[in-house]
Design a protein around this nucleic acid. Structure first.
Length: 191
DNA sequence: TATTGGATCGCC
DNA sequence: GCGATCCAATAG
C-alpha cells in the first residue's frame, strides 16, 4: 500500500517531520520520467532563532517559501552551481524546513545515472546537491506543491529503521543542535 | 551599485 | 586540500 503524504504531515514540528521522512519514498515525475528513492538522511532548519537557517535574518526573496504554508518545496542554488531541496514545515508565518540530504535510489536508476553522468549506484544520491541532480530538480521547482503529482513523498509502509541523530553538516553556527537524522548503517548516507 | 561568501562536489 | 561559479544578501 502506497500512501501519499498530505499537507497535515508537514504541518507539524519540524524535528518530527525530519525523523518521520526517513524510510519514506520521494517521487519526482518530470518530462515523462519517473524517478524515486528512499529518504535516508535529512536535516532540520527551524525558526527565526536558528543561526544556520536561511530564515535567521528574516524573510528575503530567496527564502520566502519557508515562511509560507507547509508541504511546499524550497529549492535554492548554492555555491553558484548546486541545488538543494527542502520541504517546508509548520504553520504559515513560521519559517522552517527539512533539507533532503540523501536517498537510496529506487526507481528510474538509469535516468539518474544519465543525469549524474556516472555509473556508481552509491554515488548517485548521497548528498543534497546530488539528489537534486539525479532527480532533475532545479529552481523551477521552488515553491512546488508536495501534494501535487509532480513531486511528492509516499509512505510504502516498509519496516521502520534505526535512526541516528547528529550535528548538521556544512554550517558554521548551530552545530550544537543535533538536527541531522539518518538511517543507521545505510550505504547511501552522505559523507 | 559593489562586495562577499555559501545547508557542495569532484578533482588535485 | 582547493577551485568552480553565480547569485542572494548586505553594506555603502
Amino acid at each position: 500500500m502506497k500512501k501519499k503524504l498530505n499537507r497535515k504531515f508537514y504541518n507539524r514540528p519540524t524535528l518530527k517531520v525530519a525523523r518521520e521522512l526517513l524510510g519514506k519514498y520521494l517521487v519526482v515525475k518530470k518530462e515523462g520520467t519517473y524517478v524515486s528513492g528512499k529518504i535516508v538522511e535529512t536535516e532540520a532548519y527551524i525558526g527565526p532563532d536558528d543561526p544556520a537557517s536561511h530564515a535567521y535574518r528574516g524573510m528575503t526573496r530567496r527564502n520566502k517559501v519557508m515562511f509560507g504554508d507547509p508541504g511546499y518545496a524550497y529549492v535554492y542554488l548554492t555555491y553558484g552551481m548546486h541545488h538543494c531541496l527542502n520541504f517546508v514545515t509548520e504553520r504559515k508565518g513560521f519559517p522552517a524546513a527539512v533539507l533532503i540530504r540523501a536517498l537510496e535510489p529506487s526507481e528510474g536508476i538509469e535516468i539518474m545515472r544519465k543525469r549524474r553522468k556516472i555509473e556508481d549506484l552509491k554515488n548517485l544520491t548521497n548528498g543534497p546537491a546530488k539528489v537534486c541532480q539525479a532527480l532533475g530538480i532545479d529552481r523551477t521547482l521552488n515553491g512546488a506543491d508536495l501534494c501535487s503529482d509532480v513531486i511528492y513523498v509516499e509512505d510504502r509502509e516498509n519496516e521502520p529503521a534505526k535512526i541516528v541523530f547528529t550535528s548538521r553538516i556544512g554550517i558554521k553556527e548551530g552545530k550544537d543542535k543535533k538536527w541531522r537524522f539518518y538511517i543507521e548503517n545505510n550505504e547511501f548516507v552522505s559523507k
